[in-house]
Amino acid sequence: MTTEPTLPTTCEEVRELAPDIALGLLTGEVRAAALAHLERCGACRADVAGLASAADEVLLLAPEATPPPGFADRVLGRIAELGGTEVAAPAPAGAGRGAGGTASRWRRARPLLAAAAVLVVLAGVLGLALARSRDDAPATPVATAEMQTGRGRTVGEVAVSGAGPATVEVQVPEWDALVDRWGTGPSGDYHVAIELHDGTRLLRPVPDAGGGDAWTFTVEAPAEAVATVSVVDGAGRVWCSGRLLPV
């Protein structure tokens, strides 16, 4: 029998808990410790990912139920809203429609997802906005990166500044829109993982819902020491990640 308060640190300890991680059953510091291990251990991460996929398969056995009338239209309308454009109602026979006769596309680019050329400027603006609650002048970013998903889609940005402690500023546009409806919801399930060049990994919880889609963290190291910044979910899956490049 294992005693619960022991924090998992070794592969063996994490493997024992892997099903619990995959099922989202862990809480508090046990989960934080497990996630920290997953962040640096690909083998355990793969184990958990396989178990999570198996758990998803079980869900295919759930009873089906008919949602209220208009459900699909509300979903599509909400997504169109988030995409920033009006989505066409599904056209007969699947043909595209729209004002110009072309298929209406949801614009997936977010307002802040800038081209690399303007990223530096943008990060400066971002730093200013993020510093609003602090009385010091906005720091100049030392390094920045786009936060990208595994398939290379840009979903946010990260900038680091300061000679130590460094300030790490992460912005994932529309994050708040995803979680605000849940009140005390899922933000506790998400962490920002900050990896330093020396291999140190720091795990910080994403602020509570209502904390916006821009987060600031302090790291006891110079900004140059920060290598990558990622957002990971409760199962240790990396949702997006950015490798910092000097400005």
């Binding site: 699909a72 109602a89 599904p90 699947g94 043909a95 596309r105 614009r107």
Partner: peptide
């Protein structure tokens, strides 16, 4: 990818 007809389906 934002195809409205496929999304609805």
């Amino acid at each position: 990818s934002g195809d409205p007809a496929a999304a609805a389906a």
